[in-house]
Design a protein around this nucleic acid. Sequence first.
DNA 1: AGAGTTTATTGATCTTGATCAAGTGTTTGT
DNA 2: ACAAACACTTGATCAAGATCAATAAACTCT
Lengths: 255, 255
Amino acid sequence: MTGRNVIPLEAIKIACQNCSLSALCLPMALTPEDVIRLDSIIKRNRPLHRGDHLYSEGEPFEKLRVVTTGSVKTYSTCDDGSERILGFHLPGELIGLDAIESNHHRCSAKALETTLVCDIPFDQLEKLSHQIPSLQHQLYRLLSREIGHETEILMLLGKKGADERLATFLISLSERFKSRGFSATDFFLSMSRYDIGNYLGLAVETISRIFTRFQEVGLIQVERKHVQLLNLALLKEMADGNHHKSRSHRGCQSK
Amino acid sequence: MTGRNVIPLEAIKIACQNCSLSALCLPMALTPEDVIRLDSIIKRNRPLHRGDHLYSEGEPFEKLRVVTTGSVKTYSTCDDGSERILGFHLPGELIGLDAIESNHHRCSAKALETTLVCDIPFDQLEKLSHQIPSLQHQLYRLLSREIGHETEILMLLGKKGADERLATFLISLSERFKSRGFSATDFFLSMSRYDIGNYLGLAVETISRIFTRFQEVGLIQVERKHVQLLNLALLKEMADGNHHKSRSHRGCQSK
DNA sequence: AGAGTTTATTGATCTTGATCAAGTGTTTGT
DNA sequence: ACAAACACTTGATCAAGATCAATAAACTCT
């Protein structure tokens, strides 16, 4: 709206698309000039292969990352050497926000498949945000959103049974794919069953059994990594636990 | 260091203490003038009683809160009407950061006992942060810290058994009390066993039993709300699971 | 101070999901 | 192409913790 329109809108769109700048600024009012400034600090990288690390726990933190293509898992290593998966990250999602506080990465991140990632040097972003109030606001919002995510985790791991957990997981993937323009009902799991189990706090065997059972009931269709959600509505019900004789939600009363 | 020193350090100290301004600015380099500006937007409130709400889910978000005295629980209400406790908040701790994104509270907060709370209007804080770079940076850090907290939750609920969870909970309280100048080994639980169970994803009965067992083993001394940690070192070991025949950490392998 | 409610403890039993075990199918590397 | 490693599935058994039940103790209210 404001500012001279020397920069054609098309150029901005392309900049956004190319670099998943959109992850950073989707609901944000920026002038074309500001978009260009923002875009100019973002760096493209060469593709990563499966298993490649984006960063490791303890490394100094320099930049945020945006997954452009492919997918990434973040995990932290326990004292006993086993890993705890913290999350899976799909195209358009931002990683590294947890490292700002200490200026060191609190977890490791590795590619689950061939993956493109952009870098956003945080010091430059911070400076820029100090010049552009709406960018500052957007950063506060992004960080806040991440905090709100904790609520869901608590629900998932604290209250839900195994079926509900896996249903919730599938619905979450579905919605995230959908919001990025992919199919909400037909997609590939880039992570192993082990990873899913680890993330959901369940044993691999349990994951496998539930997949099988969900398929038997006609809820989903799984073949290897390929998943189709056949009954999204029912799956959502299951995810919320509003299904079958209102199961008592594993303990945890209150008041 | 910089700026004229018209404002005596004592005054600053008092301002900090009175209002738990410290929650906001502990590791931050501010000029005395900035401290005064920051302090000027913070508002004291009359005391809340047990059960009083600070805010409820869905309410518009206006201000962050700092617990000054007493304690608060945050919780969100499930579809089935039961509540899921998200956290307990002790003196010096900041609440409301999860509400920035949507400008609405994502959870409810209520006082667990007689509690003093200060308000920090967020729009004013945001404006101020735009004028004071170090305050902006500090806000990013505070938000980031909260995100890092999610990791601990995932560890707690995804991997740990009941004993480890309760041990972790006690250690967490202990450290938080300690960092605020209270005793690390002798304190009162302002929340009910139900609340503890709800938070840790365990049934009340389980909490009760573990308290009893921990006491029998000489790990702690509990009487009603009053807890004494008799063997902090061992309790920490338990919390990390580095205890007893290295229990296999309930499923969740990976790789 | 006493009735009623809430909070906590302890025991007995049952369920969910972990663990153990064995086998098949799928990649990966040389 | 082959072997070795890895990923997945299915079945049988086991254990941690939930649920049910019954008190007991501590607050709350008038």
